[in-house]
């Protein structure tokens, strides 16, 4: 392996958010751990919501429970027990949620609406769509959480691509190349006509976007793991979730 190779592989690991959060669990807390955790939670709550829904709670209860879970996690050091052996953010979050829901059941629904500040803004309608989609997708139903997770990763990457394009002044073309789900992709030829480009230029743009898409998938997933080996494992796991539905 060449030096630049090694560098490429280890680069994301100097700053992954999940590492920051894990370190916060130890005695010497990193100052920005809470922010890192909040950022992760903000990004990854749709799969949690989907999981709570699948456990049998209605949309409102599920939103409340998810909200309360994050509140607990962020407010009162829900990560006090975090240790690096706990693995990836995805599996950690699921386990923590399962414990939380069981405890909350015991608490006779104290999380019922009202009284608690919303720390993480939840778009319930969107999350509900995510849940419906994960439930409707082929494959074993206990994978709802993982399916929603994989889809959330792709959605986050799409948002980042759009944001990057915005910064580069190519927002419209990017949005046309990556229509929102359920939208209708315009043929490249028509796009070219619309943007005053040749069809070849549009294809080239799509090709570059696709390359960037791949890079960002790795970057995004890297934020939720602590080691390079875990990154590869996590990527393969997500692939298996979306690909193997038989």
């Amino acid at each position: 392996m060449t030096p630049s190779d090694a560098e490429a592989q280890s680069r994301p690991f100097l700053t992954t958010r999940w590492q920051v959060v894990l370190q916060a669990g130890e005695e010497t807390a990193a100052p920005d751990a809470a922010a890192a955790l909040e950022a992760l939670c903000r990004a990854y709550w749709p799969p949690l919501y989907a999981h709570v829904r699948r456990m049998g709670y209605g949309p409102e209860d599920a939103a409340d429970l998810t909200q309360a879970f994050f509140a607990r996690l962020i407010e009162n050091r829900g990560l006090g027990r975090a240790d690096p052996a706990r693995g990836r953010f995805r599996t950690f979050l699921l386990t923590a949620l399962q414990h939380f829901v069981r405890d909350e059941r015991d608490r006779a629904m104290t999380w019922k609406r009202g009284g608690r500040a919303s720390l993480v803004p939840l778009d319930v309608a969107a999350a509900e769509g995510e849940y419906e989609r994960a439930v409707a997708a082929p494959g074993p139903d206990e994978r709802v959480y993982d399916r929603a997770w994989a889809h959330t990763v792709l959605a986050l990457v799409r948002q980042r691509l759009l944001a990057e394009a915005e910064a580069g002044g190519r927002a419209e073309l990017c949005a046309a190349l990556l229509p929102a789900e359920g939208g209708e992709p315009e043929p490249y030829e028509r796009l070219g006509a619309r943007f005053g480009l040749s069809e070849g230029a549009v294809k080239l743009a799509a090709f570059r976007l696709r390359q960037r898409y791949r890079e960002l998938i790795r970057e995004e997933v890297a934020q939720t793991v602590a080691t390079p080996a875990e990154l590869e494992e996590e990527l393969r796991h997500l692939l298996a979730v979306v690909a193997v539905s038989a």
């Binding site: 889809h151 696709r210 898409y213 791949r214 990527l235 997500l238 692939l239």
Partner: peptide, 11 residues
């Protein structure tokens, strides 16, 4: 932009 292909390539 098939999600499966993109993930496979990223993985």
């Amino acid at each position: 932009f098939c999600p499966v292909c993109l993930l496979r390539e990223a993985a």
